[in-house]
Design a protein around this nucleic acid. Structure first.
Lengths: 171, 171
DNA sequence: CTGTCTAGCTAACGCCGTTAGCCAAGGAGG
DNA sequence: CCTCCTTGGCTAACGGCGTTAGCTAGACAG
């Protein structure tokens, strides 16, 4: 269902709304408006709003993984730093999407099989120990989401915090 | 306004709803129901729903700081471990409140003066370097929110991840 | 020609936060 | 004692939300 052309258009419209105006703008009526149809018609293509969101979440997960892989490829030494930089850069470039991806419990049953492992690959390649990898993930996610939410004091040197954190978690 | 007795009752009702049924249950009508009044009457006490939420957020910040201080006091060695344990314990005990506290950009202008510094004190006492302190905060928040959102693989040994992370960030 | 499926539509439901406007009770000042 | 103002309720309503029910125009198959 989700790969029919109309469904793609719906997801594309949703993504545009989300990225340009944030989560509040992501409503069924607004999506339909963009396509020149009425909101109830969307339900011919998706079971509910959550199903549309899940598509966006899946997109985000894939793109975030790709960004990390590209970061690794571009800077084969200092891999953890490259990984962290790519992670942060993607999140800051797509703040609303990143928030959507992480705001709610992961809808595992609705996501494509294997997506989760795929997303974890770049990190696990760089940090083979699973416990340490989880610590790095938590650190990176924490840094990004606190930055997105403006929780650090204005003017705080976040580059430095990233450096200190990744350095400590490196060895 | 917020310290008048009726206002306290409203915040108490809101907190009960939030903690027992989650954010979806935190509506002006549900709050009013609990007090045997109608939703519009709440606006005699609070400008809008966000103002009620801000009270809850302020409560959470204070309690989280107190929990960390108590944790430190109980285990004066291995301070970072004590701090982390207290942090995690509080968040897991009040998942919906913790989420409310961290889901949105911090409403600095609406919070009592000095609250933010107060909240940071236990950590800064333990980790004087501000950059390292921020890294620890990000790690702790990341661990907690990923755990609350069920993002770690089921069965993952999170105690171990906490240990590895805090140990790495310790020195 | 007939039937079925697709993808649109309108109308409506029950929520939500919020506003406008009314009113009863109580205390303050003359 | 009467008047006036403030406090804290109320009802009615608005515009938005996700969603459902039920209808229909068109394409396409047998």
């Amino acid at each position: 269902m989700a790969d029919r052309p109309r469904s793609r258009q719906i997801v594309d419209a949703a993504r545009e709304l989300l990225e340009s105006e944030g989560a509040d703008a992501l409503t069924m009526r607004r999506i339909a408006d963009k396509l020149g149809i009425r909101a109830p018609s969307l339900y011919k293509h998706f079971a509910d709003k959550r199903a549309v969101e899940v598509e966006l979440i899946a997109q985000g997960i894939v793109e975030l993984a790709e960004a990390q892989e590209a970061g690794l490829a571009a800077e084969p030494e200092r891999t953890l730093v490259a990984l962290g930089a790519a992670f942060r850069e993607y999140a800051l470039a797509h703040p609303h999407l990143y928030r959507l991806m992480t705001d709610s419990p992961l809808p595992r049953d609705l996501l494509p099989e294997g997506l989760e492992q795929r997303a974890a690959l770049p990190l696990l390649k760089t940090v083979p120990d699973e416990h340490r990898a989880r610590a790095v993930w938590a650190f990176a996610h924490g840094m990004v989401i606190l930055e997105l939410d403006g929780r650090f004091p204005p003017g705080a040197d976040l580059d430095q915090a990233w450096r200190v954190g990744l350095d400590a978690l490196s060895d």
